[in-house]
Amino acid sequence: MESLILLLGWAGVFLPTALGAIGSIIGCGRAGQAASGALLDVETGYGRLVGVSALPSSQTIYGIVVTMQFNRVVTTDSAPGLFSIGLLVGLALLFSAIVQGSCCASAISTTKSKPEVFGLAIAPAAIVEGFAVFAFIFAMIVGGGIPGGATN
């Protein structure tokens, strides 16, 4: 039983990075595919289209930071906290990256026909990013109270 708890604790340390990366892969993939398709239909502004498709990569960075914050010697005291917070923030990063990818794909599709609405078109993607940031910040704050960290 103790081994299982420790296993979950270690999983909790790495889950934010893993789930964030999976979300970024899917999100950037969707947006990147849309950007590639849009390149067939536009004459200019290629860089901007491809640049937007990279937006969902930030969730991986947030995941890495949370993992670095959680990285410690896992004990039976700290494992439940690490797993529950790691899993939940990982899921938040996963879904936000996927949905942000879809938002970016829509923004790319809109921008190729109306370049003047570029700023407005990426606003939904920025809003989704905001929720990912909330999850990231509060994971850092709550994670600070888990036993075994630098402050405990």
Partner: peptide
Amino acid sequence: TNYYSLIASLPHM
């Protein structure tokens, strides 16, 4: 089918 690429490559109706 890669729907994202195909749909983004079509001009708006």
